[in-house]
Design a binder for these strands. Structure first.
Length: 291
DNA sequence: CTGGGGACGGGGCCC
DNA sequence: TGGGCCCCGTCCCCA
């Protein structure tokens, strides 16, 4: 039984470039749907163009934020729009080297994301011609309350201090709705992101080697915990008894033994356990025979 | 069979 | 963007 319990499996495979996974940074490992720009919820006033019918400015992110047309990003309106599809129009004249592998409209549609938190940064912008592009309209009716200067996820309202943190968080939503399969070449496990696969691949390559016994680990902090088994260091002491632990998780599990309330209860016999694994083992032992 | 400790994998968050 | 750290969770083993 593998200890990797968070392996994601999806139909279909996508084998990444393992050389890059192991030796280089992934510079563009996000799915096409993730190739968006997460913008601060407060847009500067100067972002709004002054007059309708302005010629398209030089392509840059700021101009996209300022000039992108909200309705054109909404799924139902994009699908029901009359006349040439602006996304199709844009697709007809891609900037050399910037075309995404998945059409922008497709990536946005299947995501069903609220507008304006996903903006095309590698695709010619969608320009509005009605001139109604004030920041409040840009944010749209789905704007949620937020602290000044902060960043907030539209989907789950989770606040973030930094743009980078929100961007990373948004990738989770992308993965939820547009799972990609990155398969490990060592064990065929599949992951939703190249970063997750890269982390997993380290469990095969094991770059962190113990100088005491030569045992190898995937991450430095795992090695640190292992070295404590040699040194006997136990920095995590129980506040209820004199026992100490080398691993904080084990201290946490130990603290459960001091607790009067046990979190995991058997549905059949009402017996409670301090750990999920104990409950599972109890149920598997035959206490809870199925119908 | 149960309780508990040891070891470790993976994701999220912060810097 | 990567590393460090934390948390959650699991499996293995032993008393």
């Amino acid at each position: 039984m593998p200890r990797s319990f968070l392996v994601k499996t999806h139909p279909g495979h996508r084998v990444p470039n393992y050389g890059r996974l192991e030796t280089q940074r992934e510079t563009d490992g996000t799915c096409a749907a993730c190739r968006g720009l997460v913008v601060p919820l407060l847009l500067p006033d100067k972002a709004a163009p002054s007059t309708p019918g302005d010629p398209a400015p030089p392509w840059d992110c700021a101009s996209v934020i300022a000039r992108i047309s909200l309705p054109l990003l909404r799924n139902e309106e994009a699908q029901g729009a009359s006349g040439p599809d602006p996304l199709e129009v844009n697709r007809a004249e891609p900037r050399a080297g910037w075309a995404p592998s998945v059409p922008l409209k497709d990536s946005l549609n299947h995501l069903n994301l609220p507008p304006l938190l996903v903006l095309p940064v590698r695709w010619p912008p969608i320009l509005s011609t009605d001139g109604d592009q004030a920041p409040d309209r840009l944010l749209g009716a789905e704007q949620v309350p937020h602290p000044l200067g902060g960043f907030q996820c539209f989907r789950c309202l989770k606040p973030y201090h930094t743009l980078a943190g929100l961007a990373r968080h948004r990738q989770l939503h992308c993965q939820e709705q547009a799972p990609r399969c990155f398969t490990c070449k060592y064990c065929d496990r599949e992951y939703a992101s190249p970063g997750a696969l890269k982390m997993h691949v380290r469990t095969h390559t094991l770059p962190c080697v113990c100088t005491f016994c030569g045992k190898a680990f995937s991450r430095p902090w795992l090695l640190q915990g292992h070295i404590r088994t040699h040194t006997g260091e136990k920095p995590y002491a129980c506040s209820h008894c004199s026992r100490a632990f080398a691993d904080r998780s084990n201290l946490r599990a130990h603290l459960q033994t001091h607790s009067d309330t046990k979190k995991y209860q058997c549905k059949s016999c009402a017996k409670a356990f301090s750990r999920m694994s104990l409950l599972v083992r109890h149920e598997e032992s035959g206490c809870c025979p199925g119908p």
